[in-house]
């Protein structure tokens, strides 16, 4: 039975993620852990997260995970979720500037205050909270069976720029931003698949069966 580990480093609600994975991956053993041995032995890893990035980094450091995570991200399928996406970039402007894991290049920044989604519309609310459309920019096994433009649930005030060589899906909220980034067997999403009903469960089901391979076709090319 393959093991799917959810990384527990004291940031956020792991119960929902575990329940969603139990639902879609009955053939996997779901474990919630921060033990290096268990993470190394797992077949797949979910790297979740909520809250502030400075706190996230401190908690990862305290559990000796800052060095281990990039190593695991090279070795086996890993899914970053929300703060798990932001922490994977090189740098975040949050908390006065916080270095990330550097799995993706780029800087995480705050949504600019006072901008609107269009002329005559009120300024955007921060955090970006609710169901927004996600448009894949390339085919990826984790989006199999999910219609382009499907809505996923977001809650965040900081974002990774859409202009990234690793971008796999974009979303718009005043500015375009990366809804998903992927490189090799590491994939990360800004939204919460565990809270995104059918589309979210489908993405998690896809992940629970993903072998980490990633065909490099681009839409429309």
């Amino acid at each position: 039975m393959p093991t799917l580990a959810i990384l527990d480093y004291g940031m956020g609600n792991l119960h929902s993620m575990a329940k969603a994975l139990e639902r879609v991956a009955p053939e996997s053993r779901i474990c919630i852990t921060h033990s290096a041995a268990e993470l190394r032995a797992a077949d797949r890893i979910v790297f979740p997260g909520q809250g502030a990035i400075g706190h996230c980094r401190a908690e990862l450091a305290q559990r000796d995970l800052l060095g281990l995570l990039p190593e695991l991200a090279r070795e086996k399928p890993m899914l970053g979720v929300c703060l798990g996406l932001q922490a994977a970039l090189a740098y975040s402007e949050e908390n006065g500037g916080t270095p990330g894991l550097g799995l993706f290049p780029g800087r995480v920044q705050r949504f600019p205050a006072g901008i609107a989604e269009g002329p005559g519309l009120p300024p955007i609310r921060i955090p970006h909270m609710g169901w927004n459309r996600v448009e894949p920019t390339r085919t990826h096994p984790l989006f199999a069976g999910i219609a382009p433009g499907s809505r996923f649930y977001f809650v965040h005030s900081y974002y990774a720029p859409a202009e990234s060589p690793d971008v796999a899906a974009v979303c718009h909220y005043g500015v375009p931003f990366a809804a998903a980034l992927g490189r090799g067997n590491f994939f990360a999403v800004q939204f919460h698949p565990e809270k995104s009903q059918h589309a979210g469960l489908r993405l998690l089901a896809n992940f629970s069966r993903w072998d980490g391979s990633c065909p490099a076709q681009v839409f429309g090319v």
């Binding site: 269009g118 609710g130 169901w131 459309r133």
Partner: peptide, 8 residues
């Protein structure tokens, strides 16, 4: 504009 208004 794509963020949906929510009904709770």
């Amino acid at each position: 504009m794509a963020l949906a208004k929510r009904i709770i």
